[in-house]
């Protein structure tokens, strides 16, 4: 029904446009040709402008950051004297790794289980709608709200103080929708025949999921996890609000005192970059940190492209997507953001 209305609407619109153009310009073919050239030229320009902007930004950061970034002293020495601008970024790299481990360890099991529930179990009822509504909304909340939540709930209410644990848990909530979405898409791409053949063998639902569905959805799920690792690396607002900005000591992973995991306040690379960039005498160091961040993002991107999106063997071809002649994956609305 909707479809027909749409079609008819198009016809009338086209009619109007043609009438208008023929009345105004009197069947002037050259003016139509001119309009065509200008319009297509502008579209072409806007497409390539986006590429140019990306290359310019990356090139600019690399130009000023590369010399510093690839020195042993910068990557593997601790920051000195509690100042922003001296020493290396060893503690920040460690904090970033801890944060990734911590937040993925929380978000991946919960996210994948949620995806399994939504794709395999969920009945059409109000509870399922509520869950979907919540995920939809969590995905749209800006990170600073997660930061405020982390501050009020984890830091103050649960008394974690400013710590990587508080920041990591808030970040885990932030990446939850990403993992749920990608995992659910991967699970839905598993053919129904697999499920039916497994169930026909007299195997129960959990065994089917564990032995049949999860293995064939694994590459897609890994894609989601890589995507969210990228989000964790780039996150800064949440961590400034919930993890603080200490750089005085090497962060601990476990501790004997109250928040038993990740108890220290620490800066990840992104937060460190923020402090470096906003203090004027550390600008060159900020570029170096930026290079490290961009390299991590690029690395994740290439690893992600190397594995197919929904089915097959993970990491089959270790070549970036734009170099391989694979047919494009049909676009889905929810996969890209």
């Amino acid at each position: 029904m909707q479809f027909h209305i749409c079609l008819e609407g198009e016809y009338t619109r086209l009619d109007n446009m043609q009438n208008a153009s023929s009345l105004k310009r009197g069947h002037n073919i050259s003016s139509i040709k001119l309009e065509e050239t200008i319009a297509l030229g502008l579209l072409w320009l806007s497409g390539w402008l986006v590429v140019a902007v990306l290359l310019f930004i990356i090139g600019y950061i690399f130009y000023y950051g590369i010399p510093e970034a690839f020195s042993f002293n910068y990557l593997f020495l601790p920051p000195e004297g509690g100042r922003y601008d001296t020493g290396g970024i060893l503690y920040q790299i460690i904090a970033t790794i801890y944060l990734i481990i911590g937040s993925i360890m929380v978000a991946a099991p919960v996210g994948i289980s949620t995806a399994i529930y939504l794709s395999e179990y969920a009945p059409q009822n109000i509870v399922t709608n509520m869950i979907r509504f919540a995920i939809e909304n969590l995905a749209g909340i800006p990170s600073i709200i997660y930061g405020l939540f982390g501050l009020a709930f984890f830091v103050v209410f649960l008394k974690f103080e400013y710590s990587l644990l508080a920041g990591g848990l808030a970040v885990a909530v932030m990446i939850l929708p990403v993992i749920i979405r990608t995992s659910e898409e991967a699970l839905k791409a598993v053919p129904v025949g697999y499920r039916q053949s497994s169930l026909a063998l007299g195997v129960n639902k959990w065994q089917t999921i564990y032995k049949v569905i999860l293995p064939s959805a694994l590459p897609g799920i890994l894609t989601g996890i890589l995507l969210s690792i990228g989000r964790v690396i780039g996150e800064s607002a949440i961590l400034i609000l919930a993890a603080g900005g200490s750089i005085t000591a090497i962060p601990k992973f476990v501790s004997l005192n109250y928040p038993y995991f990740l108890p220290d306040s620490a800066r990840t690379l992104a937060v460190h970059l923020y402090y470096q960039a906003t203090s004027y005498d550390a600008r060159s160091k900020a570029f170096a940190t930026g290079v490290v961040l961009i390299f991590l993002v690029l690395f994740l991107r290439i690893t992600n492209d190397a594995g197919p999106v929904t089915s097959g063997v993970p990491f089959k071809n270790f070549v970036p997507q734009f170099l391989t002649p694979t047919p494009p994956v049909p676009p889905t609305l929810s996969s890209n953001f």
């Binding site: 986006v50 993002v297 494009p328």
Partner: peptide, 25 residues
């Protein structure tokens, strides 16, 4: 397309502080 689309995805993946640094510098 195989050049432009990864560029767009990469643009989405760059951390916001890097954009901030670019703007500031």
């Amino acid at each position: 397309q195989r050049i432009v689309r990864p560029a767009v995805q990469l643009l989405a993946g760059i951390p916001s502080v890097v954009y901030g640094l670019f703007g500031l510098a």
